[in-house]
Design a protein around this nucleic acid. Sequence first.
DNA 1: GATTCGACTCGAATCGTTTCGATAGGATGC
DNA 2: GCATCCTATCGAAACGATTCGAGTCGAATC
Lengths: 357, 357
Amino acid sequence: MVARGQARPTLRDVAERAGVSVSTASLVFSGKGPVAEATGERVRAAAAELGFTGPNPLASSLRQGRAGAVGVLVEGRLRMAFRDPFAVAVLDGLAEELERVPTGMLLLGQPTDDVESVVPQLAGLALDAVVFSLCGPGDHPAVDHLAARGIPMFSTGVPSDRRVTQVRIDERGSIREISRYVRDLGHRRVAQVAMPLGPMGEPGPIREELVTDANAQIPSVGRVLGFRDVFGADAPVIQTGDGSSVEGGIIAGRALLDVPERQRPTAIVAQSDVIAAGVVIAAEELGLRVPDDLSVTGFDGVDLPWLPHRLTTMDQQGRERGRIVGRLVRRRLDGTRPRNVVAPATLREGTTTARPR
Amino acid sequence: MVARGQARPTLRDVAERAGVSVSTASLVFSGKGPVAEATGERVRAAAAELGFTGPNPLASSLRQGRAGAVGVLVEGRLRMAFRDPFAVAVLDGLAEELERVPTGMLLLGQPTDDVESVVPQLAGLALDAVVFSLCGPGDHPAVDHLAARGIPMFSTGVPSDRRVTQVRIDERGSIREISRYVRDLGHRRVAQVAMPLGPMGEPGPIREELVTDANAQIPSVGRVLGFRDVFGADAPVIQTGDGSSVEGGIIAGRALLDVPERQRPTAIVAQSDVIAAGVVIAAEELGLRVPDDLSVTGFDGVDLPWLPHRLTTMDQQGRERGRIVGRLVRRRLDGTRPRNVVAPATLREGTTTARPR
DNA sequence: GATTCGACTCGAATCGTTTCGATAGGATGC
DNA sequence: GCATCCTATCGAAACGATTCGAGTCGAATC
């Protein structure tokens, strides 16, 4: 957008050169309205001569009231966020759908130490919709601002807010399904590794007061509830400090497994695949074999080419989820009022689970 | 941007309600020009009452000629692109700098099967600059279009074009350094696994005709040249089919290692850390121990928490690279004409290299 | 008490499109 | 031959802000 040498040609320049009015020239580029073949040719020729690359997107957007961009909100540093292949898969599917509109994806990270800073940032951005992609549970400071601007919001679970259209799975039911699978294999001493339940992710014990039915739609909470539906209200659950990450899984795995054998769980149900991978790594570090000495289940169904196992997991089909969100966004731009969607998740058996010895 | 119920209030509504002119109201929000304390208060109050969330970014951008967004071009599907932690680190650093402007990052993927489709997409987007983030070597179809629009372009190596400001390392020198390290350990049978040298990534042998001094600034080519500076022009090099990925490394690793011992290299120099990780995985699959039976080096210096080794690698400091690009972009927006930058890369010894047996 | 100076406010022009309603002119129907 | 209907084109009014030069008014200066 920076002038190089001289000002960029505008539609007016093109029109003048082609000997037509500005409105006719506009018609040529937008393709709406009838234009004589010869006129169109003349305008295009003039454009080519002047180096006019098409109508100024800013002006066009202003006039049409469409920004041509969808915001994608990511909590914390981008680097952390993109470690989670599930989130990336969702983004991928989203991009796939948005490419066809055409609409760009505007990425917005927010420093963990200054969560509010995203609001002024947002205020300066023209967006047709916002997708919360990798945000932790709890209220999100941007929701009020966006609601006030009338910008439609979408998410795959969090923040959990009436004003945000959700595309989620049955969290509680899904984890219940995989938990039952583990129980039916014969496991009785089973622990869960959760993603952080609250906004402030502290590794270690979870804050039990957050585990309420009212919070059941928050993925991390719903997954604790479903797990305990099967293994009882006292079944041990610890959380990672940094969301869904291999390191978090390793740390949690060590904490659960580096104990006398009698206390050691025979199976660990992780809330995500990468966490599960971390648990597997921690187990092997400690000389335990998976699945002989320890069964591990994941959640998400992502590809982990570096893991020499195929995780038993709930397949959430991240890319398809992203596509669904993308389609909702597109329809919303066309004026359809979107409704929440419940996506499917299916159990996928892998090589990380077996009967206990 | 969709009206909810009724039209959103504009600056004019606010001004009217506060009993001031539009220009004064504008001054209040932009903070430029002197405004009496009382007036400012009145305007802000009116804004609050009307639910005015700030000047329309589109209109503001149009007037000021700044889009408030930087495009980030990614080749192929996002999911593939984000598998490379180095690229993500660069993006992370970039975001860090851009957050302060304020400028958003507009992500643009491009389907591999229709590379040209990015141009019309770009044409509809208002951008202050474009960063090529994860693109393969070769000409990029967007360069001409962006140059015509006068939009400044930046990259960390590719596409290699005079019109693109580059922030790169001394590719050839860096890989030479790590190759010497391997040679000095005593290795003589050494192979390299390269990222694709040409636009069409075919796994397997490289196209030797691309390995020319003229292409030395293309990372994948420069890294072949530097490697051969040390191990000779005949030193074997094969490339992955999909850029920098663990799978690519595994496949290449198998191809190089699943041969009679006498032909097997004692060390493999990979062009990226994730490729190196794949090679390590392939080696261990075949029962080889790293580093005892095989030394492996990476390139990039990224964190691979799931790999039970610390790679010997060239640390490129991706995040800092991204920050440098971000600073260049910012200065460019301020009017400074940027110049190419050569960033440092340093050898980091890990646990994946040793003397040959 | 006239002059000068700031601080504050305002009107109008502008950014580059799109779109609506009007108009001209040729083809068609009767 | 006149009313009717297209088709192609145009002028002007938005879209919602920013910015520049000009104007007002009270206080300070001499």
